[in-house]
Amino acid sequence: MLLVLWVIATVTFILMNIIPGGPFASEKPLPEAVKRNIEARYRLNDPLWKRYVDYMWNLIRWDLGPSFKYEGRTVNDIINSGFPVSAILGVTAVALALLLGIPAGVLAALKQNKWPDTLAMLAATVGVSVPSFIMATFLMYIFAYKLRWFPAALWGRPSQVVLPALALAGFPAAFFARLTRASMLEVLSEDFIRTAHAKGLSTTAVIVRHALKCALIPIFTYLGPLLAQIMTGSFVIEKIFAIPGLGQHYVTSIYNRDYTVILGVTVFYSILLVTLNFLVDLGYILLDPRIKLTEPSS
């Protein structure tokens, strides 16, 4: 795990130093003296290897350094203030996606090839194919501009979570629905389902306790990377709804050549991703009786 993080940090460090242009380039070039003062202040005139060693050492102590762009703010500070916002939005979106996607998938599987199935799958196809920024603009137009039910943008009140969360939930909800339907259909034809029916269990019990539990495994697998991705924020959604999250920093820091922010948010994302994947692996044991940490001796 640590090896993965080290490789990511190193590759990012090399790549960002290869791109031309620096954090203080501007259309109004600086006098030499001023440029020297700035480079001295941010230690940009140290040799590359020294900056690399310093950076790695600080990384171990989770000191991500000062932002070059935002005066007086550290990268830790930017993550600490942006991540909670993106995380709240992300978790809400995933919860919405699960609430919409799984029932739709179950319904579609149970009524296979009947109209609820067709309808759910049509909605899912639309959800998967429409990119989130189109969804966001569409939602904003309908619910903020036309109906005026929700504020168009900004962050802070619960009503301001609804539209961006819906926009973010579109794709995963559709994906969940298709995934649930497919695995439900597979599980429903298995022998143990027939056994459960034969034992005289009610249909609801069979579906919820046996079929659904198994059918959820692929969803659970997808949940790890999805959470890591969605909790660290979306550049497009945050831009459209003017949300002070972390997602925008992934893109803007590169435009700004804000070296410390580029590295900081990349490493942060990697840690989150690796950790969540690890947790998902652990979660399998609880969900799937077929997976065990140690092989029982036969």
Binding site: M140, A144, R148, P151, A152, A153, K239, A242
Partner: peptide, 15 residues
């Protein structure tokens, strides 16, 4: 706010 479209909707809805 950076997005032109967002600020337009906010302007037209009184934000």
């Amino acid at each position: 706010i950076e997005s032109e479209d967002t600020e337009l909707v906010m302007f037209e809805t009184g934000q």
